[in-house]
Design a protein around this nucleic acid. Structure first.
Length: 822
RNA sequence: GCCGAAGUGGUGGAACUGGUAGACGCAGCGGACUCAAAAUCCGCCGGGGGAAACCCUGUGAGGGUUCGAGUCCCUCCUUCGGCACCA
């Protein structure tokens, strides 16, 4: 028979066309089948896909195809996170309307995805820039406004000069804009917020339920970001008698307060008139948060001249203004206990403020004069009035109880997380559905007037401001309440709002309502989510918040959106992440045209486990190409030995055929476990390679024997089925080549016979004092006693035990015998 | 500073609950095929010693537990990631 070349271009085109025309990847609600919702983070349509996309979506596709073959009703959709700044920048630069630029990119990227053979249900495709989608952002905004979860406030916010917009806290990394790495400034602006702080505790508690399915480090990052701390809010008094509240996590040290520090922005400071202090305050306020942190590691402050009274002991202590105290956290002021806080200690030393020990080290009493640093360990209370002699852990509770009873303090939980600033001074996003009326104030646009459409006929002025700010026809409107003249909000929503619920919309993308409830209830939550770790405290936190909001609004039944999360590693080349700026980008299209999509997919899965970084190597790609060819050739060679209706009934195998069949069943077992339980695809592929290597070793005559045909038939069938999720095109082609019909996606994942996975002869090692001295092939079920006898009779073992006392013999059946001899 | 992850051949990476370290791939070396090369097929491939059988040594460093440690415990070093004046 003439050998047929492995023509991947032709094969891939053929099967993609067939999958497409038969719509094999569509999914429908089916109450009789168990659902499996598999989702990869949808991409921003930047123009072309990169290797990171290929990796992310290849992992997802493998899982989707696998679970489908396992009989699950799989939902595997794809869409576009299509609002965002790059479209606007491209528009300004090349004079293309953002909508056109975005939609052209989507067209192109969709084609690229199809070329990779991903099993998406394209009937469910959504794009966040369409009004059919973003109107529901506006709808939910309205609902949240009603519940007080969306509000506007004037506050110091993060401003990126390059992007010309404000940013959420989560979008500032080390003081730099997450997108363009420009230094972020503080600006006082009136902006819209989503009240994620209301959900801080619930989000934190929810992390417990995710322990099973989420990587620990993502949960840790979220917990740190939420930053819950419990403590006491204590009302100190100013000399005027006014309340001066502070928050502390160390009420046990309250008797050691020797000064207080207040944030420069604090309104209490308005009464300070001393010109020197005023100057300091103004300077400190002018400093950006970044400067305060990065320039001066040392704490800086100045005595305001005001005194504060400690309600516990009546002591009057000076009030300092300090650049390190944050207005946004706690009450914007702190009590300072230099003896027991490192930062306070340094500050007190610098400004010559007294230090008062209130927790002593029971083993080695402290001395103010000689202590080199604050004492932050456990100890016993001293100089603490009625609490002297109490250990400080107990004192925390007793002091809190006492203060609450006296009425000058209350227990409080404080969070680090701030509300989510969702306003963006940009054009290409979802309009915030609000109108401003002089009489009625800020009014959400009523539901029946939604969507507030984003104008698409726009003119960029070239000053990078949103074109909407000068569009009178957009801005001028009437008040929904009084009918008087009103103006529209021109800010748009953070695009992270768009991506906070798209996974739920995929369940019923064509519904005229936000969801079709039969659909959303059936499919949600997502069973397996896959994406990059960079979203740990961005998208993944927002999505959890938004899902809770949707749940409270009665729109979805789940409270956690993603049951299991896989954070895939980056694609690395020459020791760095592939990026344009580093010039180490490999274009997926080019590699696909050289080796085919199947090979590229195989390499992505073979080069490293999915959660680790992957080192790009074209040599490695060649290796995978070689493997595909190797399978192709052996299949051709033995294709006429294959019969779909093989049966092992009444057949007894022996020798190499028996071994090969056993090898096959073990491979199925391991590959299944690696995919389903361990999510370790590199070892699954390695096992299949071993199986193919074993097949190459099989004697040709033996293969062609009557029994050989049976073994080959079973092996081919199961091997091709196992290959299907990895290299779907060539697997379908191989299936057809063997004379079968239909697509493998509709076939059942191969099974294995437990009894065949057990070898009947195995190698055991004989050790003397833990060192291997000999090996032997024995029956797999040989008992302990026989093994021990055999080991002790072994010549090599004898060589090493001669003249020694045998103290002990450890036998691990099926593995080893260890003779301990001294 | 705090929290977390990881250090295994020339290289990407295996080794499930402590039990043959280096599976599988890449690179390299050798052989077969070929006039030759490529492709393919077969073999070798941590380091040191030895003609060989074999011996010694080896999973970042040092200790420990154990019959037995890449795996568990302690100390340290290095790299990467997250948070960072959060009161």
């Amino acid at each position: 028979m003439a050998e047929r070349e492995y023509n991947f271009t032709e094969i891939e085109k053929k099967w993609q066309k067939q999958w497409d025309s038969e719509e094999v990847f569509t999914s429908e609600v089916d109450d009789d089948r168990e659902k499996y919702y598999l989702l990869e983070m949808f991409p921003y349509p930047s123009g072309r896909i990169h290797m990171g996309h290929v990796r992310n979506y290849t992992i997802g596709d493998l899982m989707a195809r696998y679970w489908r073959m396992r009989g699950y009703n799989v939902l595997h959709p794809m869409g576009w996170d299509s609002f965002g700044l790059p479209a606007e920048n491209a528009a300004i630069k090349n004079n293309i309307p953002p909508k056109k630029w975005t939609e052209e990119n989507i067209e192109h990227m969709r084609e690229q995805f199809k070329k990779l053979g991903f099993s998406y249900d394209w009937n469910r495709e959504i794009a966040t820039h369409t009004k059919e989608y973003y109107r529901w952002n506006q709808y939910v905004f309205g609902k949240m406004f009603e519940k007080g979860l969306a509000y506007k406030k004037k506050a110091p916010v993060n401003w990126c000069e390059t992007c010309n917009t404000v940013l959420a806290n989560e979008q500032v990394e080390n003081g730099l804009c997450w997108r363009c790495e420009t230094q972020v400034n503080q600006k006082e602006l009136s902006q819209w917020f989503y009240k994620i702080t209301d959900y801080a505790d619930d989000l934190l508690k929810g992390t417990e339920t995710l322990k099973e399915g989420w990587p620990e480090r993502v949960l840790t990052m979220q917990k740190n970001w939420i930053g819950r701390s419990t403590g006491l809010e204590i009302i100190f008094k100013l000399e005027t008698g006014e309340d001066f509240p502070i928050f502390t996590t160390r009420p046990d040290t309250v008797y050691g307060v020797t000064f207080m520090v207040i944030a420069p922005e604090h309104p209490f400071l308005d009464r300070v008139t001393d010109p020197k202090v005023r100057e300091y305050i103004e300077n400190a306020r002018a400093q950006s948060l970044v400067d305060r942190v990065s320039e001066e590691k040392e704490k800086e402050g100045m005595d305001t001249g005001l005194k504060v009274i400690n309600p516990f002991n009546g002591e009057r202590v000076p009030l300092y203004v300090g650049n390190f105290v944050l207005m946004e956290y706690g009450t914007g002021a702190i009590m300072a206990v230099p003896a027991h806080d490192t930062r306070d200690f340094a500050f007190a030393k610098k400004y010559g403020i007294p230090i008062k020990i209130v927790i002593d080290n029971p083993d080695e009493p402290l001395d103010v004069a000689t202590m080199p640093d604050a004492y932050v360990e456990k100890g016993v209370c001293v100089n603490s009035g009625p609490f002297d002699g109490v250990d400080n852990v107990t004192a925390m509770e007793k002091i809190s109880d006492h203060a609450e009873k006296e009425g000058f303090a209350r227990r409080k939980v404080q969070y680090r997380i701030r509300d989510w600033l969702i306003s963006r001074q940009r054009y290409w996003g979802c309009p915030i559905p609000v109108v401003y009326c002089e009489k009625c104030g800020a009014m959400p646009v009523p539901e029946d007037q939604l969507p507030v459409e984003l104008p698409t006929e726009v003119d960029f002025h070239g000053d990078s401001r949103s074109p909407m700010v000068t569009m009178d026809e957009f801005i001028n409107t009437t008040c929904p309440k009084c009918g008087g003249a009103a103006t529209r909000e021109t800010d748009t929503m953070d695009t992270f709002v768009d991506s906070s619920w798209y996974f739920a919309k995929f369940t019923s993308p064509k519904s005229k309502e936000i969801f079709d409830f039969d659909e959303v209830d059936y499919w949600m939550p997502v069973d397996q989510y896959i994406g990059g770790i960079e979203h740990a405290v961005l998208h993944l936190l927002y999505a959890r918040f938004y899902t809770r909001v949707l749940n409270d609004l009665g729109l979805v039944k789940c409270r956690e959106p993603f049951k299991k999360l896989l954070t895939q590693g980056m694609v690395i080349k020459d020791g760095a992440k592939m990026s344009k700026s580093k010039g180490n980008v490999v274009d997926p299209d080019e590699i696909i045209s050289m080796y085919g999509a199947d090979t590229v997919r195989l390499f992505m899965l073979f080069a490293s486990p999915p959660d680790k970084d992957l080192d790009w190597s074209e040599k490695g790609v060649e290796g995978c190409f070689r493997f595909v060819n190797r399978v192709w050739r052996i299949l051709q060679k033995y294709s006429e030995l294959y019969t779909p209706s093989y049966s092992f009934d009444g057949v007894t195998l022996e020798g190499d055929l028996k071994k090969l069949r056993s090898e096959l069943h073990r491979t199925v077992m391991v590959v299944t476990r690696d995919i389903a339980e361990r999510m370790q695809y590199n070892t699954a592929i390695a096992r299949m390679m071993e199986l193919v290597n074993a097949l190459y070793q099989l004697d040709e005559k033996l293969a062609q024997s009557e029994k050989g045909r049976l073994v080959i038939s079973e092996l081919f069938e199961k091997l091709v089925l196992m290959l299907a999720p990895f290299v779907p095109h060539v697997a379908d082609e191989m299936w057809e080549m063997l004379g079968n019909s239909g697509m493998l996606i509709d076939h059942t994942w191969p099974d294995y016979l437990e009894e065949l996975t057990v070898k009947d002869e195995i190698e055991v090692v004989f050790q003397v004092n833990g060192k291997i001295r000999s090996k032997a092939m024995v029956a797999a079920d040989m008992g302990k006693d026989d093994l021990e006898k055999m080991a002790l009779a072994d010549e090599r073992v004898k060589d090493f035990t001669d003249g020694k006392d045998i103290k002990k013999v450890i036998v691990v059946p099926g593995k080893l015998v260890n003779v301990v001899a001294v």
